[in-house]
Design a binder for these strands. Sequence first.
DNA 1: TAGCGTTATGCTACAGTTTGCATAACCGAT
DNA 2: ATCGGTTATGCAAACTGTAGCATAACGCTA
Lengths: 98, 98
Amino acid sequence: MLSDWRADLLETIERTGSLARAAETMEVPYRTAWYKLKEIEEQLGLRLLETQSGGLGGGRSTLTVEARQLVQRFRRLTVGVSELVSQRFQAEFGDWPR
Amino acid sequence: MLSDWRADLLETIERTGSLARAAETMEVPYRTAWYKLKEIEEQLGLRLLETQSGGLGGGRSTLTVEARQLVQRFRRLTVGVSELVSQRFQAEFGDWPR
DNA sequence: TAGCGTTATGCTACAGTTTGCATAACCGAT
DNA sequence: ATCGGTTATGCAAACTGTAGCATAACGCTA
């Protein structure tokens, strides 16, 4: 339910302080980004964003504590994995004919 | 282009000796299984099946040597990886509230 | 109060995937 | 010769994910 891309999205929201800006930064429609977030929230049964519409800058979004923890854990989970995969891939398919 | 599920499919074909039976075993329509195989063959540019229609039992399918090697390598590639992942997952999310 | 940029969400369209149905060819066994 | 079960494929329908467009509410700022 989480993925590298989704973790990126969450981090970008945190960095930009807005879902709209995060979506633009990641070059994905706002509609889609929003939908993805809802998906995660639904699957995991938790709220990811602390949002406010209106006000300074039009509004803002920040991550909830749970979301921040989630991303942290996910990052720790995946670090080293892709390296292992490509290493194994090299070992098994390095001599692949095509 | 390969995946756990696809490797399963190939192994099931080998085990049952028939694409039709493999599809039934894996509870996926014959049409779909066939389509998936074509997809892999096309992407990798190799033949996966040694087929015969008609004859004893109506016909049969067995894996080509290349297909068998492919599955073997893929299994070796993924075995250590999934172990690492589930170990890491346990470490990071073992105490996850839900 | 009017304007602006953001959140939130419904409706719709479009593209790609999956699936159902149909048909043809094949060939050993009866 | 006919039957059965299999491979092979075309075609169209159903389903799914992604994206575009529209609209409403919100609240700071000018």
